[in-house]
Amino acid sequence: MINNSLIQLKPNEKAIIGEIVNCGSARKRLYELGLNKGAKVTMVKNDIGPVILNLYGHKLALGRGLASKIIVG
């Protein structure tokens, strides 16, 4: 369990994206959606189901499994 991943963010908490680990071809897709290293995100919703992020003022939903593989700083 990574203890500084996206999944630990509370709603309205801001973070900067770091490494993305162990998720195969999804990693590149995330980069291409703007979740590359250094991108600023704000957690919008994190209770049940996928998390919702605010990225550049737009909303992106990510499965919880995936969110736990995205390290944030």
Partner: peptide, 11 residues
Amino acid sequence: ESSYFIMELPP
């Protein structure tokens, strides 16, 4: 490979 949920929520 099971796929991850990645989806844009448009305004």
